[in-house]
Write a protein that binds this DNA or RNA. Structure first.
Length: 526
DNA sequence: AAAAAAT
């Protein structure tokens, strides 16, 4: 199994040449396992972690197999977003570089006439989004009745509600003797079952089993915040970490707009991307982000899946995603192709249970981190300035400033001059004037009242276990919970959100009231 | 319950 070379796979020599040209030698696991089976002609459902080269896994064998002599379309690939359609199309073009295969991305937000013209000239592979593909099918400008391959990228999303009707319509317009390939990093069982409906009976499942659903090289952390401190917390994190490139996810389009505005007014080099923006603007923003002229991209889940940008150092969940799959895909924008990555999530006490669900689903540990203090930020900035100065000195490319420096030397102490320069850099880099108390460090105590019914077999130990598992309270004394009383209360920090009491069989206690009340006492903690 | 996807 180890040390397979691409040349050992039975791919078209011209495809191999292109793969070599792209600098790849050893196939990733998903590539090594999928390529032979796809070449055999089998239907495949492929699942492998984010950033492990799924596009090449289906693209190389497909491009090897298709017959590009006739003018008919040989392969249709469906993706959930326009940007992904373009990206997949671009990558396939690179793989098909030495073949005379013609590819065409078709997606909305773009004049349809040009696409129709290209389709008329004859195209081998079409990569598109559902809406526009259907539009072409209805206009009869796209004929899928004689294809060799139907490939559904991000298949679990495409077969989920919201897309499934469109996908079904597209599948219906395809000939049934095609080869069907489904790929994604996540593949819930119910989607797998549904998928078999559209595939041949001997569908082959290829799952690159890993201990975790997320990439190990991406370190995951969460920050516990109050909702009103969300923006301030994000800024502090960014100012300490100074990510070279980060994607920040919001739950809603409005959330994206608001965050972009807030960040821009604080001087960050940031732009937003969501589905209500013009296609040109979307592409423009993504292009700037890819070429490094944009540091931060704020986006909805439109950017959660598939988008491959090199060297994204951080993914930040400004809001936690609604579903756990989305978390996997979002943080999969970093830590790609075996690189390191950092994933942060801002979590309010209310959202804590959701975080725990995500941890369970991904089988990975999300560690707690503390929001940086203003001192932390200053310290990080000082260190960074020092590093920049050392770098410039070692590069020796500051010589043309020596005359000015000499002049200043006659008048001042050079230590003073250096410190003054650092102040200038510092103020340029940190346009925002931090006040120490911009985040409340007061920790409010919550008093939880549990009303426990007589028939419930909850023991203090079980209740404690439940509280520690569903809240971020790390330790709590058993002795503090007196559950023998029918009515009991405990006082714990606010970071506990909603506590739902469950019986030991996991069922929710019906009709029991659990009230959460803010205690009067406030504990300062700075 | 939000986002994506056609005009």
């Amino acid at each position: 199994m180890k040390n397979i070379n691409f040349n050992d796979l039975d791919l078209d020599p011209k495809i191999l040449q292109a793969i070599d040209n792209m600098g790849f030698e050893e196939p990733s696991q998903i590539q090594a396992e999928s390529i032979p089976i796809i070449l055999e002609g089998k239907d495949v459902i492929g699942q492998a972690q984010t950033g492990t080269g799924k596009t090449l896994a289906f693209g190389a064998p497909m491009l090897s197999k298709i017959n590009s002599k006739d003018k008919k379309i040989s392969c249709i690939i469906v993706t959930p977003t326009r940007e992904l359609a373009i990206q997949v199309n671009d990558e396939l073009s690179r793989i098909a570089k030495f073949k005379r295969t013609s590819l065409l991305p078709i997606y909305g937000g773009q004049p349809i006439e040009r696409q129709i013209k290209s389709l008329k000239r004859g195209v081998d592979v079409v990569v598109g989004t559902p809406g526009r593909i259907l539009d072409h099918l209805h206009r009869k400008t796209l004929d899928l009745s004689n294809i060799q391959f139907l490939i559904i990228d991000e298949a679990d999303e495409m077969l989920d509600m919201g897309f499934i009707d469109d996908i079904e319509d597209i599948i219906k317009s395809c000939n049934s003797d095609r080869q069907t390939l489904l790929f994604s990093a996540t593949m819930p069982n119910q989607i797998k079952r549904l998928a078999s409906k559209y595939m041949k009976n001997d569908v082959k499942y290829i799952e690159i089993a890993k201990n975790t659903l997320t990439v190990e090289k991406t370190k995951q952390y969460y920050y516990e915040i109050k909702n009103k401190d969300r923006f301030e917390s994000l800024c502090r994190i960014l100012d300490v970490d100074e990510p070279s490139s980060a994607i920040i996810f919001c739950r809603t389009k409005r959330g994206v707009d608001e965050l972009v505005e807030g960040m821009q007014s604080r001087g960050y080099n940031v732009e937003g991307m969501h589905g209500d923006m013009g296609q040109n603007q979307r592409l423009n923003t993504l292009r700037k982000f890819k070429d490094g002229s944009l540091d931060f991209l704020v986006a909805t889940d439109v950017a959660a899946r598939g988008i491959d940008v090199e060297n994204v150092s951080h993914v930040i969940n400004y809001d936690l995603p609604q579903d756990t799959e989305s978390y996997v895909h979002r943080i999969g924008r970093t830590g790609r192709a075996n690189k390191e990555g950092i994933a942060y999530s801002l979590v309010t006490p209310k959202e804590y249970i959701l975080l725990k669900q995500i941890e369970k689903f991904t089988k990975s540990k999300i560690k707690r981190k503390e929001i940086p203090t203003v001192d932390d930020i200053f310290e990080a900035k000082y260190k960074n300035i020092e590093k920049e100065i050392r770098d410039v000195i070692s590069e020796e490319n500051y010589k043309n400033f020596i005359p000015v420096a000499t002049e200043l030397d006659e008048e001042y102490n050079l230590v003073d001059v250096a410190a003054a320069l650092m102040k200038i850099i510092f103020e340029k880099e940190l346009s925002f004037n931090y006040k120490e108390n911009s985040i409340s460090t007061e920790e409010e105590n919550i008093r939880l009242f549990f009303s426990i019914g007589r028939m419930d077999n909850i023991t203090p130990r079980k209740l404690l276990k439940f509280i520690t598992e569903t809240s971020s309270v790390e330790t709590y004394e058993i002795g503090d919970i007196d559950i023998l009383n029918k009515f009991t209360f405990i006082s714990i920090p606010e970071r506990v959100g909603n506590i739902i009491l469950k019986k030991s069989n996991g069922k929710r206690l019906q009709g029991r009231r659990v009230s959460v009340e803010l205690a009067k006492s406030k504990k300062s903690n700075s």
